[in-house]
Amino acid sequence: MNNQPSAKKFLGWFNPLGRNPGSWAFIISRITALGLTLYLFLHLIVLGRLAQGPEAYQEFLALTENPVVKIGELAVIGAVIYHGLNGIRIVLTSFGIGVTRQAQLFYASIVLAIVGTLVFTIRMFAG
């Protein structure tokens, strides 16, 4: 029947029309969560090379010079900073702090994530 809730409607979370900042905060947090979970497990696996000895690890280090890998790393950094700061927004608002400013807290998370990513971009490409 039309108009009723359904689990499939979670796809509607990605519809940007008519959204308030809080919804954006939620959606971006979810997307970064999924990306970071994937990265986490890959990262843990790759670090196993440390146990295999210096040559194995050196191979991996050589990979990190690849610009595509660097950009991937920067995406991870941006994602963690945003996700972490939004999480702090949730913690604060859940205890009554900053509820009236929750949208501004979201904007601040985005800005700081961009700033952090830029800092490491400079570090990784020009440091």
Partner: peptide
Amino acid sequence: CHSAFECTA
């Protein structure tokens, strides 16, 4: 609740 605050809006 995922703090979207659409309700408040």
